[in-house]
Amino acid sequence: MHILLAEDDTETARFIAEGLTALGHQVTHVATGPLALQAASDATFDAVILDRMLPGLDGLEVLRQLRAVPNRVPVLVLTALGGIADRVDGLDAGADDYLVKPFAFVELAARLNALARRVPGPEQTTRIEIGEIALDLLRREVTRCGKPVHLQPREFALLEQLMRQAGRVVTRTMFLENVWGFHFDPQTNIVESHLSRLRTKLREGFSDDPIETIRGSGYRIRTDA
């Protein structure tokens, strides 16, 4: 992927750029608001990482001007401000995702993947099939090899997240945001306990687990299952 990184803090920028390069991405780094706006207008990027506080032009203002063009490039806003009101401001300005510093690199990488590969209009899909598993979004039904699997609403929502991000990692906080609508991290294992039930139900009558745990990052659905 070709990623535009707009971040004025040299240390943070180096840490992100090195990490993304190591994952095989191509990174263009700018350190000011006007340069970020110019770079995003001049070239086509798969995703933009935009720091909220940029010299010259505020990150949110860059975002507003981009969206006014309109430029629909996926944008992930980074911020040191974790308040509820700040997050709402960011999403109002047109951010696709919002990540509060300090964050784990795996979290950034997972969210970037989820954003950049978001195919326009997947929400209209009524059926997702990955390997042996099929998800009917209208009837809220799941089958594995044609055999029905009965899931609770939250288990279904977890599986839907995993299948929409087939082959990519979904982190714990992504589950919390998308399934529960929580933008904070409860210190207990509600994600784990629901996932464990989901896995047990999917595995019933089969020998293998279609969901992989990626240690230190999150979960991924196997595309070969």
Partner: peptide, 19 residues
């Protein structure tokens, strides 16, 4: 109120009960 704050308060109480 705020849904997330109320949720977090409840979660903390339940976490305490678990711990």
């Amino acid at each position: 109120g705020d849904r997330e704050l109320i949720a977090q308060a409840l979660i903390n109480l339940l976490d305490n009960a678990l711990l």
